[in-house]
């Protein structure tokens, strides 16, 4: 997708500017056109596991943006000196470093959240979105535009998680970010939404809506998939 040619970024002539004219396209592609969760269906494990509350989803989204931007920057900076044979080992080392840094900061400054997210922050090390973007984009692009790509994909993941988290928390507990918004006199929380099956149902609906809106995964536009 990075190699598909690059329409000009708003304000930049084609092929110029700090992102080589690819900034806006790259960002839009990560958040919308090739959204990592809703279109590529990557990173599903954590997307299903942590979205029972909106707050958890948001922190997980921030984690992915942080790791995605940091990893893409360093993988891109080192792309010309990294031996090809061990590039994946190098990528995992960089990813792991960023993930552990985030996890440590969470443990120190946001202890309750760290307990709630449990192992899922650490498991970002094996998140296919991060590794995928490092391999597919950062290895063959310049640092700045690689950071934009990490930001776009991290935001794409964060937005999807926030939407799922919003609806699961609302339906499952009648509250948003812990504040009761649906009154208990007339609303009975539906526990299904906060349990694992609720995550599958919510994600299914979201992917369907995303596909209908972006018309992604349609053979006439994207080639057969």
């Amino acid at each position: 997708m990075a190699d598909r040619g690059s329409p000009a970024c708003v304000g930049c002539a084609p092929g110029t500017g700090p992102c080589g004219g690819k900034g806006m396209e790259t960002l839009r592609s990560g958040v919308w056109i090739t959204n990592p969760v809703a279109v590529q269906v990557l990173g599903i494990c954590s997307a299903l596991a942590v979205t029972n509350r909106l707050e958890n989803s948001l922190v997980m989204g921030v984690a992915l943006v942080f790791v995605g931007v940091g990893t893409n920057l360093f993988v891109s900076l080192l792309r010309n000196v990294t031996p090809r044979r061990i590039r994946m080992i190098a990528e995992v080392a960089i990813i792991a470093t960023f993930v552990i840094v985030f996890d440590q900061i969470l443990k120190a400054y946001y202890w309750e959240m760290s307990k709630q997210l449990g192992p899922y922050v650490g498991l970002i090390i094996t998140n296919c979105i991060i590794m995928g973007r490092a391999e597919a984009f950062a290895l063959s692009n310049r640092p700045l535009v690689s950071m934009v790509d990490g930001l776009g994909n991290g935001l794409g993941y964060a937005v999807v998680l926030a939407i799922i988290g919003f609806f699961r928390e609302l339906v499952g507990t009648g509250s948003i970010l812990g504040h009761q918004v649906l009154l208990s006199e007339w609303y009975t929380p539906n526990q299904l939404a906060v349990l694992a099956p609720g995550a599958f149902v919510a994600l299914g609906f979201l992917i369907a809506i995303f596909n209908a809106l972006t018309r992604a995964n349609q053979t006439d536009e994207m080639g057969s998939q």
Binding site: A90, A96, Q104
Partner: peptide
């Protein structure tokens, strides 16, 4: 390369651990 990268990552993590 792998050794250097490993050492740099380890140093970064040690610093963060000490800080927190």
């Amino acid at each position: 390369y792998a050794a250097t990268l490993g050492i740099i990552c380890a140093l970064a993590l040690t610093a963060v651990d000490g800080f927190t």
